[in-house]
Design a protein around this nucleic acid. Structure first.
Lengths: 256, 256
DNA sequence: CGCTTAGTTGAGTTCGTTCAACGACTGTGG
DNA sequence: CCACAGTCGTTGAACGAACTCAACTAAGCG
């Protein structure tokens, strides 16, 4: 249980926005190709970029935000807290993920989001979201697609926290993150996890101490090693099997 | 099998497919009004109705289903299981809720869904989903809206299971269900919960025995009583407070 | 150098689990 | 009609997983 930081996402500069058509993220093989027409639309839809330091709040519970974001670089996480400070991390947000859709579609956001590392966000004004639905059904479908993917992650996380043991659940999350990172960093064989154990604990619904002991046990058992922010696993399939990991992410996905 | 029925549960079994414009569900004040044009479209979008007995599977993990559904009457739930049988109920599905969107949008469903009572479903062929996006941006937006609402329920459920105590979490779920039922049964002051304790336990991520003991404790504390499928609560705000319940459902929502 | 943050470990406690048994009720076949 | 099996709820007892408290190391930074 940690108290969330109080600093607001204030000083942010819309700077040197990269045109979508040359966006390095989009070139990755895990994202679906887009037509020139779609790219032109997305480019004018994009309001600018926003950079935030690690630890800053991207969305805050109750604070109506008028924007949605695509994460361009860095890591973030969505979370909720109870009045007494207990915190649950709902999901991690990686490059290419859409953030703030709930806030944009429903009234206001019921969750917060924090930058885990320094991040770059692509800003979409909420008002323009409607344009997508009116003019680009393909992109509107993509929005729903991304929402359905997020929902699936939540389903799996819920199964994890509700029914998996501490060790299974930890292993599951590591495999899950490894998979998502791997699709974003083709060719690289090291997996960097820029997390603290406290954050991992808040994602797992465990205490910090127990998370630590569980990780050490997984390490001693030779299943995974997580040292200095780097993940090493001698046998990913074995770890996935231990974690009862099932789902796989589709090969390609949309991005806004 | 005596099963408590809500106001909604009783409607004519003689009629096979109710035209959307006279759908009794739609008339409820909790659903947003629709234009005549929208209704005409939805009517031809609707493929038919499907009735299932309590306990039957609506969706099955891995089995690609080509349909999405709107629940017209009865209760259902979405769930996932681990290979050894451990089960987690992800969410309950009440009349007006959309079911199978994940399956329709992504490749195949990663969760199952089961009828909790006898249910009536409105069947939408997956192939036609695309028509919505092409022709009725307002309805497409509704689909996203419903997905975002489901996501919010999952967020709250995750916070519950990850960070609330057994008692808080039980109270939370009861308040949550009460709220959703109440919006569907205006004027009624009894709340029927057609569940077994085993199902409640699977939703809470607790064992059956501990769920029972927790419920008995809540009862003895005078917070809630759940007997013979009926929920009684002397002071809902007090229960919500105990549960650290925060969110409220928007006053009106879309329906397909 | 002291101050802070992150990780590690042991000891004792609490919460939730498993095992086991029993009562109330329902449906079924003899 | 009763005997029987099956489901659901209830409770006690014993156990184990995860928690809290507390102390200590190591690294980063003014």
């Amino acid at each position: 249980m940690t108290r969330p930081r109080t600093n607001l996402a204030r000083h942010s500069h819309a700077s040197s926005a990269v045109p979508c058509r040359v966006c390095p993220l989009r070139q990755l093989p895990c994202f679906r190709p887009f037509t020139a027409e779609e790219l032109t639309f997305v480019e004018q839809f994009k309001q600018g970029e926003k950079r935030l330091k690690a630890g800053m709040q991207i969305l805050e519970e109750g604070q109506p935000s008028s924007n949605a974001y695509t994460l361009l670089s860095g890591w973030a996480f969505r979370y909720k807290t109870l009045p007494d400070g207990r915190r649950q991390i709902l999901n991690f947000v990686l490059p290419g993920d859409l953030l703030g859709l709930q806030a944009a579609v429903l009234a206001d956001p019921e969750h917060s989001a924090e930058a885990l590392t320094d991040v770059t966000l692509c800003v979409f004004p909420r008002a323009k979201l409607w344009d997508i639905y009116n003019n680009y059904p393909g992109l509107a479908f993509d929005v729903t697609w991304l929402a359905a993917r997020e929902e699936r992650f939540l389903d799996e996380h819920l199964l994890s926290i509700g029914r998996r043991s501490a060790a299974e659940r930890s292993a599951y999350l590591l495999v899950h993150l490894h998979q998502r990172i791997a699709s974003l960093t083709p060719g690289s064989d090291v997996t960097a996890l820029p997390l603290t154990q406290q954050q991992l604990a808040d994602a797992l619904g465990l205490s910090l101490v127990h998370t630590n002991k569980t990780l050490r046990r997984l390490d001693r058992a030779g299943l995974v090693r997580w040292r200095d922010g780097l993940l090493h696993c001698p046998d990913w399939p074995a770890l996935a099997d231990f974690a009862k990991f099932e789902a796989g992410d589709p090969a390609t996905r949309p991005i806004l």
